[in-house]
């Protein structure tokens, strides 16, 4: 087969005349698609602190605190797998298609959740008490609760 010199010239000249293939990032951003997995967002009004996202998250990025009534996500651990969105029984989690801004220090995004568990109705003492239909009451307390406090040390750079 024939060998040719300078075959790259056409490609290189084309690159010279073309607009840059990159975008100047903070000033301009690459368009996102409808399907892009950007970040997890929560509608805190619908959340009932059921802990399912916390337990099923493959990387343990989500931490739900039932006593403090907060839902927290460590964006650096989240792998955008969409699993929490799939398993959420109240459909309060959503995968937004834009990315969060880069962080300057490691921290969790903590969202307060205004949820008050319904008070169980008083029952006659003789009847066996049924299990509450609220997942908050039905689920056992997790043995090792993760630390929800954001780490106080900021990174050096």
């Amino acid at each position: 087969m024939k060998q040719k010199p300078l075959t790259m010239t056409r490609v290189a000249l084309g690159s010279l005349l073309r607009k840059p293939a990159t975008v100047p990032y903070p000033a301009a951003r690459k368009p996102v698609y409808l399907a892009t997995r950007g970040h997890i967002a929560i509608e805190e009004d619908k959340c009932n602190l059921c802990l399912i996202c916390d337990r099923r998250c493959p990387t343990g990025a989500i931490a739900v605190d039932r006593t403090g009534k907060t839902w927290a996500i460590d964006r650096l651990r989240c792998i955008q797998c969409n699993h929490c969105v799939d398993v959420c029984p109240r459909k309060c989690l959503a995968m937004e298609n834009d990315y969060t801004t880069p962080m300057q220090m490691k921290r969790s995004d903590v969202v307060p959740v205004p949820f008050t568990p319904p008070q169980p109705k008083p029952k006659p003492a003789a009847a066996p008490a049924p299990t509450s239909d609220s997942p908050l009451q039905a689920k056992e307390e997790r043995p090792g609760e993760r630390n929800h406090e954001p780490p106080d040390q900021s990174s050096a750079d």
Binding site: P122, A125, P128, A129, T131, A138, E140
Partner: peptide, 9 residues
């Protein structure tokens, strides 16, 4: 097992 509340809350 799901914790069955034994007593009245």
């Amino acid at each position: 097992n799901k914790p069955q509340p034994q007593k009245e809350p």
